[in-house]
Structures are given as structure tokens and as C-alpha cells.
Design a protein around this nucleic acid. Structure first.
Lengths: 334, 334
DNA sequence: CTGTTAGCGCATTCAA
DNA sequence: TTGAATGCGCTAACAG
């Protein structure tokens, strides 16, 4: 930094431009009420001084128009949500404050900073902490939970229809002639329960026996689960994985073991993250629409802010998933 | 939200506890100067009212103690940096404001919000915008650039010794008896230039001919590049990829084509992101130490803030990379 | 169209 | 140990 010491303020600009602070404020906010000549002059001086309105002082004055967003830095799907939420918030005239959950920074810490930041509502991406914690948070600020089930009047929920998503996967495999289909589950991760249930339901509905293999949300967990599956005497012909990362890990195990995909084994993921779309993976998967979820979440947050409370939209925001067929599923062997 | 309408303030707590605002302020900041009895009472009332100090009002008062961090949501290595920077900043008594770069939100927009947020310094993770933009930003606020070369008195740089990193990779392969080693480069991405140069230097030093294959930072680019390599008449025996994602993509192409790794082809990545560590990938790679880089970056930012300007640490912060040998490299075939 | 003024929530003087 | 007063940068009344 080479420029002056102090940060330029609205008053500095006003003084230098020879106008009132009100006028500068008007011009900077783009509201009408200033002559073109003055508007021009203010802009010029502001640029000269490197003036940027102080968002904190602005917020202190009245409403902050801030949406607090908690997400996990290492989750690709959360990255998609972040992107969508930025966009949706901007459209609605709100700003977003990010608060990341990392290995050394837990959800409680993440929310604490959001609270201190004067956010008007909280968006929580797939919170892992218990239900009581969530309702506790929701008691303090309007709260929207994404990608997790919670049933409580204080919290709005936006999620994918997990059960339906898994059903799409199973049905797709059935259409291809598979009958021995296993599910690598997500363990204790949010949504894992629903997907497990969806799998069981879909299988039993067709008179098939559900087989669950313990997994997780990471590539490693998928890898390990697939190895276990390959060791089974009665090897299945298809795998429905908890998510894309898990599916990718499983794929690696299969490649390693020389099992041809999809000839000898079909694999379906969940999420449709960037990972799945890469041409080399070509993963058949269940797509969660991050953009739609983001839009819904923002809209619900704002509605909660403005109506003070209560969910006018009636119930969870459930986004329908879609089946994306790529290269990892194929006909069952005769 | 079920509680009262207005957010509780310091004055509310003071009134309810029957003490002065000063006292509450003291207690909340944990500075000495209040009787144990009062301290206790203030804490109790604060909890009852759900009082959280307003960080924005606090910042308005004097210094904000805020570090602005720009990073790319979809880059795993940036996630590692974010994690480290949160930790390092906290140790130093600073807070972090995140500003993500996404597909719909460019670097300029990201920095603009950081400026408005009253940050005292900026940390830019591998900025892609031109040099002039960076120096322009640095003219406004103390700035530290991570993982990219910039030579300018106004900007501090923290980066991995890219040239040395690539040399480690090449030397490792030479030790294993490889001579036909190609480099899948990073195109126009920051640091790609240095790695390219490091590769050329390392090869020519040993009298070998460098062979560059155009690549990029994504898995897809690595996949495509590897396909091209496999099509070559004079197929190499080893690949040094621009980064882990690129290497992972290349690995997939090799698996697909039935090329055994490392028997028929060795592959080295760069970064040592989570991806590389997963057991199923077992990628030999050049490790960038995100934690050390984060610590250095924070320390330089603070030093710039406090000394007003100038880089007392003298020159770039260069973090030595290390070779991590896993399963994707092996002896060249006789 | 433009200027004056009050106050947002907090930390920090200075007095008591 | 405690309390009252001041100002950070900005916006929203209100007056000119």
C-alpha cells in the first residue's frame, strides 16, 4: 500500500468534492436525487480517493441485508451450493457472509462468527451436529437447513428428494436387468438415513433383498466398501453409492481389481458434482440441482426474515433429483 | 426464531444486569476490571438474552482486525489454505473474511466486497487476473499473494518453490531409471510457467529432451493429455503432471487404456491434496505445505499492516516442497 | 436539488 | 471498581 494512511470516508469525498455528505451517500447508493453534474463529480473524487462505502457502518445504521452461510470447504457439492447462493442472494438484494467448517473449525465456531456478524438469517449446508443444536441456532435467527432433514417449526428445510433419487437409481438398474444390487451407505452423514431407506424400499418393492455395505461420504470409504464387495462370494452386479465421491472411490477399487465397468459391474453415484461430469469418470449419477436448491434456500430465508417467522411456503422445499446416465451403468450380464 | 424481535445489545445486558455498559464491555472482552460477582451476573444475563457482541460495531470503533481472503471454491488446495489461514489468523488475534471466486463471481467482485468489509489486509489465493490488477489492489490495501509469482514492492508473495518441486519429481523418476519423461503442463494457470521451466531445466541438465504436452489444472485436462500421450508413437515411461487433479485424470485415462501403473507408466502429481492421499489413488506427488504457507501468509500480512508498508521479511516467502512417494511411480522397465 | 442533525452498537476516554 | 460522555462512518428524517 502506497497511498495515504487513513481510509477515505464519505465525509472526505464530500469535502473534496465540495458537496454534502448526503449527496455523496445518494450518489454512491445510486438513488435518484442528485444533478448529473454533481453525480459525475462525486464519482470522480471517490475514485481519486479510492473511496469504498463501509459496509459495516452501513449495516450498523439499520438492516444488514446479510445472509450467513455455513458450509464445508472440502465438500465439492457445497461449493456448488455456495456458487448458487451467491447468485440468488445478489438477485434478491442481499449479501452473503461465508463461514467455513474445516478440520480445525467446527460448526459451532462457524455459526458463532455469523451471529457476531449481524446476519439476518442463517443458511446451513448439511449440518452434522445434532438436532438440538440446530433448533437452538434457529431459536436465535431465522434458519434454513440445506440437504438435511429436520422437522421443527423454527427451521426451513431445502433438500433433495433422497428417497426418490435412490429409487431412480435402483429402477434404472432394474431396467438394465440387474437384480443383485447393493448399496454403499453414507454412515452417519446427514441424508444417509433417507437414502438407506429409499434403497430398502425400492428393493423390497420389487421382491429383491436389500444388501447394505457400510460406507461413508469420502472416496476412501467407497474404495474400501468396494473391496469388501469384491471379496463376497455372491458378488452383486451393481452398486448404488451414497454419493459421487464414494462412487469414484468404488470405481477405483474396481479398476484396480480388473473388474470391467459397466460390463462386469454397474455403478451409480449421487450429487452430480463436477467430479461425475468429467469425461474420464463418466459416472452415472443422481443429480441434485444445486442452483435450484440455492434459490429456494435464499427465498425461504428472506421470507422468514420478512414475515418475522413461520414458513409460508408450507413444509420442506423438496427438489426433485434426476437420473443422469453416463458410462458406468450398462446391461446386466446374461 | 421465537425470541424477542430486536437483537440484544450491550446496553440491554447492562440494564437488565443493573450495571453500566462499560462493565459489560469489560466482561465480554475478558479484560480485568470487574468483580467476580458482577462478571458472573453479566455472563448469566448475556446468555439469557442471547447477547452476542456486534463485530461490525466493534470494528467501526477502531481497528477491524480482519484479514480478507480470496480463494476459489472449487480448488481443493485452496480449501487446505483456507483451513490453515483460519488457524493462523486466530492464533495471531485476527479474524478472517472469506470471499469466494466461483463460476459466476470473478476476482474483481470478490475483492470489492473485501474492501467494503473494512479488511486490514488481503490474502489472494492464486489470483488469475493480470499483474496490473494485482498491483492495483495492492495499492489500496496491504496484500499477500499465495501460490503465484509477482514481483512488486507493494505485494508480499508466499509460494512453493515450484522449480525445485518439479526437479524433485524429475530426479525421482531418473533414480528409477526413466529417461522418457513428459510434462503435462498447466497452461495459463498461475505457477504453470514456473513448473514448465523447472521441468525443462531438470531435463536438459541431464541431457534429456523435454517434451511438453498441453494440459490444465483439471482432471479432464489430465485425462485428455494422457490420451494424447498414449497415442504417440514414441510413448514415454513417465509423466510429471501439473497438479494432482491433472495427474488423477491422467491415471484414469491410463487405467481405461489398460496401461499398468506404475509397471508400464509412472505418474507424479503436485500439491498433495486430499485426493492424492486417498488410499485408492496412492498418488506419488510433490507436497505443498498448505499449513506453512498459510502461517507465512498471515504473518506477512500482519507485518505489512503493522509496519504500514514494506516487506521486512525480505523477498518472497518460499516454502520448500517435498516428494511424497506413494504407489504411482516405479522402476522403468528394462 | 442540497445541507444539518441524530443515532445505530460499541470501546474508550475521563471522573467519581 | 463503576458510570457518563464521545465518536467511529453511515443513512434517514427533516429543513432549506
Amino acid at each position: 500500500m502506497t497511498t495515504s494512511g487513513r481510509r477515505a470516508t464519505l465525509a472526505d469525498v464530500a469535502r473534496r468534492a465540495g458537496v454534502s455528505t448526503t449527496l455523496v451517500s445518494l450518489v454512491m447508493r445510486g438513488v435518484p436525487g442528485a444533478s448529473p453534474a454533481n453525480r459525475e463529480k462525486v464519482f470522480r473524487v471517490a475514485r481519486e480517493l479510492g473511496y469504498v462505502p463501509d459496509s459495516r457502518a452501513r449495516a450498523l445504521r439499520g438492516r444488514s441485508h446479510l445472509l450467513g452461510l455455513m458450509y464445508e470447504v472440502h465438500q465439492p457439492f457445497h461449493a456448488d451450493l455456495v456458487d448458487g447462493i451467491y447468485a440468488a442472494a445478489e438477485e434478491a438484494g442481499y449479501d452473503v457472509v461465508l463461514s467455513a467448517v474445516t478440520q480445525r473449525r467446527n460448526e459451532d465456531a462457524a455459526v458463532e462468527t455469523l451471529l457476531a456478524d449481524r446476519c439476518e438469517a442463517l443458511l446451513l449446508c448439511a449440518p452434522r451436529t445434532g438436532r438440538n443444536w440446530i433448533t437452538g441456532v434457529a431459536a436465535r435467527l431465522p434458519t434454513v437447513v440445506l440437504a438435511r432433514h429436520v422437522r421443527h417449526p423454527d427451521v426451513s428445510v431445502v433438500r433433495t428428494a433422497d428417497v426418490k433419487g435412490i429409487r431412480l437409481a435402483v429402477d434404472h438398474l432394474l431396467d438394465l436387468g440387474h437384480t443383485r444390487i447393493v448399496h454403499i451407505d453414507g454412515g452417519s452423514v446427514p441424508a444417509a438415513e433417507q437414502r438407506r431407506r429409499g434403497y430398502r424400499t425400492a428393493m423390497t418393492k420389487h421382491g429383491l433383498t436389500p444388501v447394505l455395505v457400510p460406507g461413508g461420504w469420502s472416496e476412501e470409504s467407497g474404495f474400501l466398501a468396494a473391496q469388501r464387495i469384491l471379496g463376497d462370494a455372491d458378488r452383486p452386479t451393481a452398486i448404488v453409492a451414497f454419493n459421487d465421491a464414494c462412487a469414484t472411490g468404488a470405481l477405483s477399487a474396481l479398476f484396480r481389481a480388473g473388474v470391467a465397468v459397466p460390463q462386469a459391474m454397474s455403478v451409480v453415484g449421487f450429487d452430480d458434482t463436477h467430479l461425475a461430469g468429467f469425461s474420464h469418470v463418466g459416472l452415472t449419477t443422481i443429480r441434485q440441482d444445486a442452483t435450484v436448491m440455492a434459490r429456494m434456500a435464499v427465498s425461504r430465508a428472506i421470507s422468514r426474515i420478512e414475515t418475522g417467522s413461520g414458513d409460508s411456503n408450507g413444509g420442506d422445499g423438496v427438489v426433485p433429483p434426476t437420473l443422469v446416465i453416463r458410462g458406468t451403468t450398462g446391461p446386466a450380464r446374461a
